[in-house]
Design a protein around this nucleic acid. Sequence first.
DNA 1: CTTATATTCTTGAAAAAGTCAATGATTAAG
DNA 2: CTTAATCATTGACTTTTTCAAGAATATAAG
Lengths: 160, 160
Amino acid sequence: MAPEEKNTAVLEEHDRLLASDLAGEIEFLTARTRSLGSLLANRELAPLDLKVRSYSVLSLACGPTPPTQRELAGFLSLDPSQIVALVDQLEKRGLVLRVPDPQDRRSKIIRATGDGAAVYRQAREATHRAEEAALGSLSPAERDELRRLLTKTAFPDGQG
Amino acid sequence: MAPEEKNTAVLEEHDRLLASDLAGEIEFLTARTRSLGSLLANRELAPLDLKVRSYSVLSLACGPTPPTQRELAGFLSLDPSQIVALVDQLEKRGLVLRVPDPQDRRSKIIRATGDGAAVYRQAREATHRAEEAALGSLSPAERDELRRLLTKTAFPDGQG
DNA sequence: CTTATATTCTTGAAAAAGTCAATGATTAAG
DNA sequence: CTTAATCATTGACTTTTTCAAGAATATAAG
């Protein structure tokens, strides 16, 4: 409640520490970028009763090749048991369905419903607003380059 | 125990999902990169009884301008109470000291001991090995560019 | 077909991390 | 002096993460 009285003082004056070894490590910069990014994204997604995690599941469920729960776990770097909980919530809200995989009856394919697709459209707008806020200081070309580099690090097997 | 029998199958075949909307979102790519990166870093740091978090505190404590706990919290995007726990551990091991700030007796400056500096030197080698593994597919120029872009997103106030 | 092994989802418990409010000591402002 | 604000700390609480085990299904070998 009272969403406007929250902490807007996320940014502080730690310029002194910018000269540290740590500030030059990509691992650290990635963690900080992710922390800030998910803070902004969660803030925008809150009105839809979604978080970054549930949004990610819904997004993939809306795609052209809906994933199994096992695929969700691998793709999102989550434990299979966490996927169960996320899908439970979304299914309870009628946004996704567990469809038995005809090729392997152990697996369940997570597919979005019509309602799920509608919510996803709004959610994508929310995350785009958050992305705009998070990447405000980057030009379109820089964003493309960042996306390219992060894709290589996020899926290292793609390059070998 | 048995460190070599752990999961080497982190990378899976989810090429199908690479065509999804989500795979194009920087927020998601950042989260995945960070997840993989901290997995590798924690693995390398384990022999030193450190994790990425405690390593970050130790690193800043070794720097030329040791931070207060408040600064650590802001810089590492952590709650002040989490800093207390991290510093407690490091102080118990004799790696850092809580030095009262002469300019503000409420604050405590976290400074590394000689032992702390020695452990940090080893730890930095460990994280560099992990970074090498995580960024193996990027050229030196690409790593520099990634570092530059992530710095802008991690510290957006620096640009406005 | 039968047996053995592996995979997928699920459950439940435990550990770790994150959030939040309150407090004592100190500082800053009025 | 009084009041308000800040820093480190504690404790409670929620969320997330990690693990181990089990039921159902699939795969491979005999």
